[in-house]
Design a protein around this nucleic acid. Structure first.
Lengths: 138, 138
DNA sequence: TATACACTTGCACAAATATGCAAGTGTATG
DNA sequence: CATACACTTGCATATTTGTGCAAGTGTATA
């Protein structure tokens, strides 16, 4: 059986299980996984996600976001700080204001993807795993 | 939670910024955001993400995963439980074993996307780090 | 039916987070 | 230079997680 003779024996021990269609080799090196997890984690909060969805529409200053989201400015600032820590959003000063926007197209794609999936019923067998439904311009 | 006594001056503190043209209308309804956030959160842990990456290769039973990941069976089971709670993975019994695999293609896409982004240093509109927040016009 | 497997869950705890409030920083203006 | 803005940060606190260990559940087999 599968004794604990652990090692990279990536060989299924139980039985030859069927493999679903798409087998692309994913980048699973320690660093990628770590970074990816951090990003997902940052996106994994309703409040922050809402904020991101908002930023997907363009650049906003903290005050605006606070008003629209009906939250205290400090709260919004904190959330943006979390997102900034993982390079999900980017900021630049504009006079008295600080404008926030998504860091890059990738982020937009990721979020668009997630929201799309979440709003649709499960089991949607997309054929192309590489090019996702993410080609929307920012 | 807490009810906010936020200033009701619903006037955007700053003038509307030019928002780069169009955007795909993201599904930002309460439910989608909530669900999407839950998914992202579940994916937002290195250990679970690694597990998912593994499952992207095919179906595995808990024991196998435990061996490969060098973790206790109970630990793996717990992680899978979290993923199962959000319909990220699916399981089916096969004799004595319980086989786990990704719930659907969408999940694969999402993870593949995230990992891809995390592994490429790419498109970083640079150094927004902490330093220069010097006045810039939009 | 009794046993051995293969997982799953219940608990107790340590660690990581989220948030509100108050104080602090950086810019434009009077 | 003094003020008013527009944000950001430090703190203390209440929650929410992530484990490890031990006991519990379900399935196949002798």
């Amino acid at each position: 059986m599968y004794s604990k003779s652990v090692k990279e024996t990536l060989q299924p021990a139980c039985s030859p299980h069927d493999h679903p269609g798409s087998q692309a080799t994913l980048p699973v090196d320690e660093q990628s996984v770590e970074r990816c997890a951090r990003i997902f984690r940052a996106l994994g909060d309703p409040a922050r996600l809402r904020l991101i969805a908002r930023l997907a529409q363009g650049a906003f200053c903290v005050g605006e976001l606070a008003t629209v989201e009906q939250e205290a400015v400090a709260t919004i600032s904190q959330r943006l700080r979390v997102l900034r820590a993982d390079n999900i959003v980017r900021r630049k000063r504009d006079g008295k204001h600080v404008l926030y926007s998504l860091a890059d197209q990738h982020m937009f794609d990721l979020v668009a993807n997630g929201l799309a999936h979440a709003s649709e019923p499960a089991t949607h067998t997309t054929s192309n795993s590489e090019a996702s439904l993410a080609s929307v311009q920012l």
